[in-house]
Design a protein around this nucleic acid. Sequence first.
DNA 1: GCGTTACATCGTAATATTACGATATTGAAG
DNA 2: CTTCAATATCGTAATATTACGATGTAACGC
Lengths: 110, 110
Amino acid sequence: MGLTKSEIFTDDQNKLASLFKVLGHPARVAILQYIIDQKACICNDLVEELGLAQATISQHLKELKNTGIIQGTIEGKSVCYCIDEKTWKQTQAAFNAFFNQEVKVISCCP
Amino acid sequence: MGLTKSEIFTDDQNKLASLFKVLGHPARVAILQYIIDQKACICNDLVEELGLAQATISQHLKELKNTGIIQGTIEGKSVCYCIDEKTWKQTQAAFNAFFNQEVKVISCCP
DNA sequence: GCGTTACATCGTAATATTACGATATTGAAG
DNA sequence: CTTCAATATCGTAATATTACGATGTAACGC
């Protein structure tokens, strides 16, 4: 046990859940916010900004990169990370599709 | 280690991350979708709908209840779950606030 | 009362995540 | 070529999550 039974869910459910999951950690939320705020790419100011070890930041960046939400470009000896607009918009659309069902919600438990 | 360092993040970041986190599992996405689709409350048709053990479903429902997204009302010998509109709207607002930053995103890595 | 149904909770095994130090790797500077 | 700075990756300890069987509990029908 302890292993998520992905087989029993739809692709959409698995995909949506894994998008939510990657954002389900404060460090990754903070990283994304930082990248968005700086508007431009940052490298590892992140290590100084957040109080986490370089290895830890690198690991979180990797997870964000794996979903495609951010992309990294090598620039000299550092790496420039930024939002991947295409994936970001897809992610946004997926979330909106999920949350737009809300209009139909009728609370039935008084 | 292995323990998330919540102290180093803002309350907003921690809150947002924990909202994302609870939705970061396909079973909980499926449960929410089912509750929304049925429009009305359901009890544990969920156990039959999804192929998970009753204990597992109950555990997932508890996590959803803890965030306040759903609420359960005892109705005879069964429990009626439904979306808690207030929390749902707050959640939606939190997500929207996060995703609306997107307009400022400029991809700087060609 | 007794059995049944619909849950919740407990205990626990399997697995995943988080964090970090240590150790590559790669490019720039000297 | 050597050194340093910026990162990635590896190994691993601490902790968390997922799933389930077993067991508790409360409400109903009899």
